[in-house]
Design a protein around this nucleic acid. Structure first.
Lengths: 375, 375
DNA sequence: CTGAAAGCGCTTACAG
DNA sequence: CTGAAAGCGCTTACAG
């Protein structure tokens, strides 16, 4: 009876079902429908069954906006990350962007999985690098969610504080503020250990730092740690404006290409700000007939999954990327539930993964994939 | 005056602002506030200014749920993709997953950027591969959005139809139904051209197809196209159960490792279901002392960004990934606005990109990054 | 141009 | 255990 006039025009099927329709066909009040749908214990078996039958029959799904409005919970957390101009074009110029986002994607996946576990969904939004007022867009996003997770470089500290005064905010790979919590990997320790390996164990006498975004806290911390260790060893560090790879393979390749074409003497080892950059660097070095690691050692950061599937396999610093994302959600979720965070920043340990690109071994044995040395 | 009691406890700042607060401090009705906030033309300059001042002063942001409820538009589209068990562990066993998702991530980014252009946000959700009733989770998601974009393999056709009867649905790299629209790259044509290049131009006399997920329409179409061309040339195709790489680098490497350890004779060329797989294959072949492309030619599919930054640079089929995503959103957006789609499926052209891994050239010239031949 | 009021579709005290 | 009713915070005819 109530199906007749619907099936006719696809999703344009007249006024959508509401809880009133369900109540009517089940012969109960809307309160009862609501209660069984929300798994309350009160409705007795028979009521429950009648409601479920009606729900089934009508294919009813409660409206999320109405639920959110009356229960004061949207079950949505917003995630904002930064994107550098991205024009939906196929112009190779824009490719830097896409491959520098692998880390962000994996992080988001970690958030997403953790969110699912609590019945929350992710509202994903990116802000343009030179967007004048990201605050406006982010405010709107805040209106659609219960809390916000901000990747690095999307809002300045005062913007973060302002937002955090309105709703719970957690930042990722950024800096804590008095109102928000920051989740980050132990960049300093990871880079320190890697640098000691390069300069101590391998004894390289010159080193370069191929940087990521200059306003990325991760990048800054890594460079600083490398410089500190290099100073201990009295080894010069090549870095600066000519060494900016922007976290991308294309950027890493570009730096090497220019350095070589300018006749600059390359250091014995190059620490890249992330794995993508290292991939681009290895590629470009080989192009010019240089062997990695024999002529130049190269390392990455993050340990994204392709790092082990290239030759030479990349020596890098493994960050618990998904875990960082999951922890960001969990922390935010607690805050949404009214808990006040115990600390302003949570630092997760990282682990140096020794493969071939640093000069450690010719190549791992083909038969075992997990033979990396993690000391 | 109204700031005093707020700044004290972070986001727990008493009852949140509402449009009534703004109206009161501006000395106008809530209707006027609503009108200026929504950019209606009616309110006169003075009213507009008073409202804006109050909004600014209070840091007011309208509640998204309330807006959605009364305007019947959430400005949210849900995106659902499939994830194979993902436990937030660092167990290498689970790495296949992460790297097989690059394509999905780029697709999502295309959707996201297009959505932003229309003021929409993405509600991202993944479903487990062996989730019994993804329908439940997806229904709930549908309740939170105005339309849904489904990646391949998340819902069977009847599930898609059922969902599409309730709200607009667009699928990606999947199959059209009578109620939903599918957006897909021209897999058949791309693979056909690639196969002709391998078997015709290069004259390889044996070929393998290293497959992706067996229930992925893309994968099926690619294999079928390859077989058809191979048949024309009378060239045998190695494929099947021992050739399943599941779209990941780890999977591709695994297949090669087993084939070699079983003493199987490898074909002269291996077509991989996607780029990640090809990366794993190249890696593993080299491990065993085999040269690519001299001993075995290898090709990918998709042309993700790292494809050009590895050696040998990957010959592959470029899909307009972001464009596919953007088109999915645009199509969905039209449907949300009441347009009935003109066609059930939109196929976007793809382009074979000839680099080195097929045997075309030793290596491209270092100085130019865009010298791929696209014929 | 502006305001009072109805209504969007739910949840949840409050009675019974 | 169940229902009538209020209320969540907006938008938008409807009058004026």
């Amino acid at each position: 009876m109530q199906e007749g006039d619907e099936a006719q025009r696809g999703h344009k099927s007249g006024p959508p079902m509401t809880i009133y329709d369900v109540a009517r066909t089940a012969g109960v009040s809307i309160a009862s429908v609501s209660r069984v749908l929300n798994g309350h214990s009160s409705p007795r078996q028979e009521t429950r069954e009648r409601v479920m039958r009606a729900v089934e029959e009508l294919g009813f799904v409660p409206d999320g906006a109405a639920r959110a409005l009356s229960s004061r919970l949207k079950e949505v957390v917003a995630v904002v990350f930064r994107r550098t101009r991205f024009e939906l074009s196929t112009d190779p110029e824009f490719e830097d962007e896409a491959d520098s986002l692998v880390f962000v994607d994996v992080l988001n996946r970690g958030i997403e999985v953790a969110a699912q576990n609590q019945g929350f969904d992710l509202l994903l939004s990116s802000v343009e690098v030179n967007e004048h007022a990201p605050g406006g867009k982010i405010s709107k996003l805040a209106g659609k969610s219960d809390g916000v997770i901000l990747h690095d470089r999307v809002l300045n500290p005062s913007g973060v504080v302002r937002l955090a005064e309105r709703l719970p905010v957690v930042t990722l790979a950024s800096t804590p503020t008095r109102a928000s919590v920051n989740i980050v990997g132990d960049n300093a320790e990871g880079m320190r250990e890697l640098a000691h390996h390069l300069l101590g164990t391998h004894g390289y006498r010159s080193i370069g730092y191929l940087s990521g975004h200059s306003d990325s806290p991760d990048n800054l911390t890594r460079e600083k740690a490398l410089r500190a260790v290099a100073a201990e060893y009295g080894v010069p560090v090549s870095a600066g404006p000519r060494w900016t790879g922007e976290y991308s393979a294309a950027g890493g390749a570009r730096v090497i290409r220019r350095l070589i074409s300018d006749g600059v003497q390359l250091p014995q080892a190059i620490c890249c700000a992330n794995d993508q950059t290292a991939l681009g660097v290895v590629y470009e070095l080989r192009h010019h007939g240089l062997k990695v690691p024999d002529d130049v050692a190269v390392t990455g950061f993050d340990d994204v999954s392709i790092a082990r599937h290239v030759s030479p396999a990349l020596t890098t610093v493994r960050q618990p990327i998904e875990r960082l994302g999951a922890l960001a959600f969990e922390t935010l979720h607690d805050m949404i539930n009214g808990a006040r965070p115990a600390e302003r920043q949570i630092v997760l340990p990282v682990q140096v993964v020794y493969r071939s690109s640093c000069g450690c071994r010719p190549e791992p044995a083909p038969s075992s994939r997990r033979d990396e040395t993690m000391r």
